[in-house]
Structure formats: C-alpha cells, structure tokens
C-alpha cells in the first residue's frame, strides 16, 4: 500500500508533469486561459492516462518490444477518441471551448512517457496509481496556471466575474502570459524545493 501511495504522490510533487518533468506543454499553454477549460483538459488527460497505463501494463508481456510504440499509439488514440466522443455527446460546451486540444491528447507526451517509462515495466496496480498521480499532477499544474491567468487576465475565477471592469492584464490570457506564468511557477516550485533542478 505504501508503495502505491508513493507511485501516486510522485506525480504531484517531484515528478509533476508540468513543473517537474516539464512535459505536455502544448495543452498546458494553450488551454490554461480559464479554470473551467483547464480542469476539463486535466480530467480528460487523466482518464486517458489511467486507462492507457492499465491496458499497456496488462499487455506488457504480450506486446513485443519492437512493435511497442505503434501498439501504444493505437491504445492511447483509442482512449482519446472515446474521451472525445463522450465529451462531445455529454459536455458540448466543454467540447467547444477545448476544440482541437481534446484529440491532441494523443500526442501529449506525458501519456507516451508514462507508457514507455512506467506502465510497460510495472504491474497493473502500480501503473494505475502512477497514471492517476500523473493525471492529478497535470490537472493541478494546468489548473494553477489557469487560475492565475484567468484571475489576472479576465478578472474571474472559473468564469465567475469578480469585478465589473476592463482594466485587466490582457497579456495574461494571451500566449505570452502563459509562458510568463509557467516560467515563474517553475522557478517558484524549484525555489521551494517541490521539484528538482
């Protein structure tokens, strides 16, 4: 049990995909304009991570090493498509605001990295916990960035406006704001010793 908790918690702290591993930047930068979008993206990616880790770990003795990459891609793409269709059918609002970034989870390197580095070498249960931890860590990372950007850039939290004004820092919801926030947060997390240099 203790080791399972360790597999789970490492994705949130030391190996945090956003601030520690610095992986999966495309959705992190693109979707973190609002907290709602960020959490939606995080949950979708977590879903894909957990299931792809589960299946890849279960099939690790069945898939020969030489064709592992195409196999992983097929498995990951399948879950991404399931996720995409589900969101389209039941959460049309989210599907509209996330747009192309849901199908792009396929190429999110966190998922491929965990499949290659962890799930293909570990048993099913630890792999699920690893995927869950990485997913939660990713969700937290993107949500923190989105919280800051949305608050400063459009003066709202999860779409709820706090002030009736237009004097917000517009650059924060543009691309440079994403890079600025992300850079400063990485520096902060290293300064606090949460992630390694």
């Amino acid at each position: 049990m203790k080791s399972l908790i360790k597999e789970f918690s490492k994705g949130i702290t030391v190996l945090n995909p956003t601030f520690g591993l610095i992986l999966g930047l495309c959705p992190t930068l693109a979707v973190s304009t609002s907290l709602f979008n960020a959490v939606g993206m995080g949950v979708a990616a977590t879903f894909v991570l957990v299931f792809s880790n589960l299946i890849i770990s279960a099939l690790r003795n069945f898939i020969p090493a030489r064709i592992r990459l195409p196999s992983y891609i097929v498995i990951i793409a399948t879950f991404v498509t399931v996720c995409e269709l589900g969101i389209k059918a039941y959460l049309p609002g989210l599907s509209k605001s996330l747009g192309i970034f849901i199908p792009l989870i396929v190429v999110n390197c966190i998922i491929m990295a965990r499949a290659e580095a962890f799930a293909s070498r570990n048993r099913i249960l630890p792999s699920i916990f690893d995927g869950l931890g990485m997913g939660v860590g990713f969700t937290l990372g993107i949500a923190i960035i989105a919280f800051i950007r949305e608050l400063l850039g459009s003066g709202s939290i999860a779409g709820i406006g706090l002030l009736k004004s237009n004097e917000f820092i517009l650059v924060m919801i543009l691309a440079p704001g994403a890079l600025l926030t992300m850079g400063l947060l990485i520096a902060l997390s290293r300064l606090m010793g949460l992630t390694k240099r």
Partner: peptide
C-alpha cells in the same frame, strides 16, 4: 508482429465502433 498489432487494432476498432454507436445520436441531437 503483424498479427499482434492486428489484434490490438481490431479490439480498438471494435471498442470505438461501440462508443460511436452509443454517442452518435446524442452528438447529432446536440
């Protein structure tokens, strides 16, 4: 190798077809 990859693809395709059948009416309605 081809056989194994084929099996994975067939299973994946089957799963996707199922999900598509389930969600299609809902998506069109939306």
């Amino acid at each position: 190798f081809g056989f194994i990859l084929g099996i994975i693809c067939i299973v994946a395709a089957g799963l996707l077809a199922g999900v598509d059948i389930l969600t299609k009416p809902k998506i069109i309605a939306q």
